[in-house]
Amino acid sequence: MNYLWAGMILIGVVYAAFTGSLPDVTTAALDSAKEAVTLCITMLGVMSFWMGLMKIAENAGMIATLAHRLRPVLHFLFPQIPKEHIVNEYLSTNMIANILGLGWAATPLGLKAMEELQKINEKNCERYGENQYRGTDIATKEMCDFLIINISSLQLVPINIIAYRTQYGSIAPTDIMGAAIAATTVGTIVAIVFCKLVPDRGRVSGKDLFGKS
């Protein structure tokens, strides 16, 4: 991550120096920083509102019901996570929000899921020690698999794309939906197969990594 970030900045500035677009880069850097803050202010409202609603749903037992229905799917994707662990709720609701195309709703849930997975990881590092594949700054298999499946972005209604198509005078804006669902399904299937093929190296053999302590 450090290299990726530094690389992006350095390559950008050096390349701009050669092509003479340094003033653009300066403007872009300042504008982007401002844009990030504006985005966060919008997100503060939206996310607080959404997390508030989710808390109601959680306390009323709605999410537990929903997560319960997705349980077989989650158990197939993440066999190591015990069925009653709280992270299942975040994972399943994140997936549902993603499928419905509610990206802004999915992100806070995904971040909560990562937070929980990291707590588990930290506990495991403490109990079983760190090595090449396990550490507080190393992603666990669950984190990697979750993000890969998340990025494959199974989505039912690409509503913003349909809106753009309408705006540009398409004769049938929703025509692409079938093909889009097919393409996104292919991506998700490939993601799941990929995750299933990668061995879980960080795991301690014969020990329950997610055991209660």
Binding site: W5, M8, I9, I11, G12, V13, Y15, A16, T19, S21, D24, V25, T27, A28, A29, D31, S32, A33, E35, A36, V37, L39
Partner: peptide, 15 residues
């Protein structure tokens, strides 16, 4: 902020 600046720089440079 860190990320959006990095992407913004990369995009504006024409890279």
């Amino acid at each position: 902020i860190g990320l959006m600046v990095a992407v913004g720089v990369l995009r504006a440079s024409g890279f």
